[in-house]
Design a protein around this nucleic acid. Structure first.
Lengths: 128, 128, 128, 128
DNA sequence: TTTT
DNA sequence: TTTT
């Protein structure tokens, strides 16, 4: 609710198509990862690029938008909150997962989606 | 460098005093965790408060500020970037860690620090 | 809708009590100004503090929260969007106004509100 | 200094080429305006798009980047702070101006700049 | 582990 | 796993 307390924003590119699942009660979930690049010069004056991969997750309408518009390599801006989960894996080892749960998804760089049908969806997207 | 690409902001309270270490080359590192509270009503109309604990890390001057001013429970606003690391623990299990590496630290709620000495440090803090 | 496209965040203190109005259809509007301080050293090594005053406006429920909880000097964190308006003043001169229209309001520094009644309102606040 | 206290972020498109000036001491200044679009449905269910134009200003290296890479219509993400100035115009009328002073400028949507020369500059850009 |  |  209080987005100002816990806020993450990423601008980067999708590594792969989103993975889409549907919960038992029919709600869509999209998972994908976003690469953000940080470039700087090291002490020797060499240009270094470091890429971070962030796991993001979108629910409901945002997941539907992700499913319809996101393609591999697509540039996006997202905003959401940082959440931490843990679970016990099949070997009994406790695992910790950190994800960004989206509340905004913005397609950047114009690009692909141009058919009339997609335009309609773009319209839906604007509602997000 | 490009903070706009990878940005995290948290406003919350410290769980404990920061842990301070010094690297071999004399640089300070501060680690601490910040609680952010999210409250909402569930489907039964009950008020639910969920607390998330975020691991944050500050280097250099920010670590020194953290060491001098941060106390258990202190309210802070921080900004930084999301970084992901992994390491192999002593049992040979690969562990993943997500941290927020700070580039801003703001003490909220006025409060304690009032001595002349501390004022000087507050001054240093303003440089951060 | 797309907050990520146009986003302002301020952390600072109220200059005065909010001014509250009610529109014809009964919606509350709160206006107030927030001071943000920027301190730095100038070329002579002198510490300079510059204060900026930002006009913010809150509608509906946020205006009600502002009315009930905001006091002169209170520390707040706000998020909203930047809007620009213009009008012609009584001398026929075109005037331009820039305001921050809030969608989040966070009371910082703990403090005053403690009575049972106010607690209830805090509750409402949490909904914001 | 304390960007967290006064932060503006905009993602949108340039209305025109930046205007470039150079101060007496040789520092570049770039001014341009960015359109952000907000779309929503009104009470009649009609889709409304509102465009806001924001005046932004970049100094020094950021101004040089703006000069070299920004073109009319280009999609950008910017971050900066909100500043308010006033001056008296030639008719003796006091005028108020609000601007976003940039500290980050990110070119979105890939696109144009491809020559070797420009690549070099892109390199400079990455330093920003 | 915090805080309201 | 992306992109510039």
């Amino acid at each position: 609710m209080y987005a100002i307390r816990n806020k993450v924003q990423l601008i980067g590119n999708l590594g792969q198509l989103p993975e889409i699942r549907t919960t038992e009660n029919g709600k869509k979930v999209a998972r994908f990862s976003i690469a953000t690049n940080d470039t700087y010069r090291n002490s020797k004056g060499e240009r270094i690029t470091e890429t971070s991969w962030h796991n993001v997750i979108a629910w409901g309408k945002l997941a539907e938008i992700a499913e319809k518009f996101l393609t591999k390599g697509r540039e996006v801006a997202v905003a959401g909150k940082l959440v931490h989960r843990h679970y016990t894996d099949k070997n009994g080892i406790k695992r910790y997962v950190t994800e960004v749960v989206l509340n905004e998804l913005l397609l950047l760089g114009g690009g692909k989606p141009q058919t009339e049908y997609v335009e309609q969806e773009e319209d839906a997207l604007t509602e997000a």
